[in-house]
């Protein structure tokens, strides 16, 4: 059955109005980022000219390039770390039969019920003891193991036919070779989903970098934004918004490209 014309018009109307409302704050920030002080006070929506002065200013005020690089290093490290650690664990859960598997699986599940914020105090002390304040390993290593990621991959690994595993054993393929040459390539889509998810959440992380970066050496862009906002608050909103736009472009791009993949992958992981 096809949707009737009036219903179609009504749907498009709702779609346009609501999606504009959702996207409005980002669009607004984008417009403000090109405005001069007086323009902002006048309360315009469109800037008179699209000049890039605010953007050059924001790179002058903050070591933003440095922060961006830090965020990239941290996000990519966590992404790769999660892919390795989670896929190894998921492989063990699916392709090994051993005593205590259910118990270890239960331990993994239980980590999902422990909110990260409830454990942050001893974690900060641990990082201090290891002397990992202001280091990349301090920012990344605690997030490599991820129960959600393990389940997502386990879901996909379970769909791999058992016959394939048996055949590989007969052919004399080692456990690790089977993992590396067969399981991982088959599961590319799930790995991409988990990778995108890991990158996105790490890029947007706020509390942990706030706690364990005390100087600019490994500080990430999110903390840079807080810095920028508290420095500039009264005067130059245009510069602040230029900073915001620079910070959200990488993740928005990733989302625009990977939206379909992410939505499919995440909802599969959600439904055990």
């Amino acid at each position: 059955m096809k949707t009737s014309l009036p219903a179609k018009i009504w749907l498009y109307f709702l779609l346009i109005v609501t999606s504009l409302c959702v996207f409005f704050p980002v669009l607004y920030a984008f417009m403000i980022s090109f405005m001069t002080g007086p323009e902002i006070i006048q309360g315009r929506f469109f800037p008179q000219t699209f000049n890039l002065e605010n953007y050059t200013k924001v790179f002058d005020r903050l070591p933003l390039l440095n922060y961006l690089l830090n965020s990239f290093i941290v996000s990519i490290s966590v992404m790769l770390g999660q892919l390795v650690v989670c896929s190894l664990a998921a492989y063990a859960f699916v392709f090994f039969k051993f005593k205590g598997r259910d118990f270890i699986f239960f331990l993994f599940i239980s980590t999902m019920m422990i909110p990260w914020e409830a454990t942050m105090i001893p974690n900060v002390f641990t990082i201090r003891k290891l002397d990992w304040f202001n280091t990349y390993q301090g920012l990344t290593l605690p997030f490599f193991a991820l129960a959600f990621g393990t389940f997502l991959l386990r879901q996909h690994f379970l769909t791999i036919p058992k016959e394939l595993h048996e055949a590989s054993q007969i052919a004399g393929l080692s456990r690790f070779k089977f993992f590396w040459k067969v399981v991982l390539p088959i599961s590319k889509t799930s790995l991409v989903t988990l990778g995108a998810y890991g990158f996105l959440t790490t890029w947007n992380m706020y509390l942990w970098p706030l706690l364990i970066t005390t100087n600019q050496s490994v500080r990430t862009v999110q903390i840079g934004l807080k810095q920028l906002q508290s420095q500039e608050i009264a005067t130059e909103w245009g510069v602040v918004m230029a900073g915001v736009i620079v910070v959200i472009i990488p993740t928005l791009l990733l989302l625009f490209i990977g939206q379909k993949q992410l939505q499919k992958g995440l909802s599969q992981g959600a439904l055990k």
Binding site: P25, L200, L225, M241, L255
Partner: peptide, 27 residues
Amino acid sequence: GIGFFRTMYSSTMGVSVAASSVIWLFM
């Protein structure tokens, strides 16, 4: 063109808490 709208609705997931907070602080 539904793909376009889907991207718009999901866009806030790509905007970090810090960035969103600064935008809303201004609004």
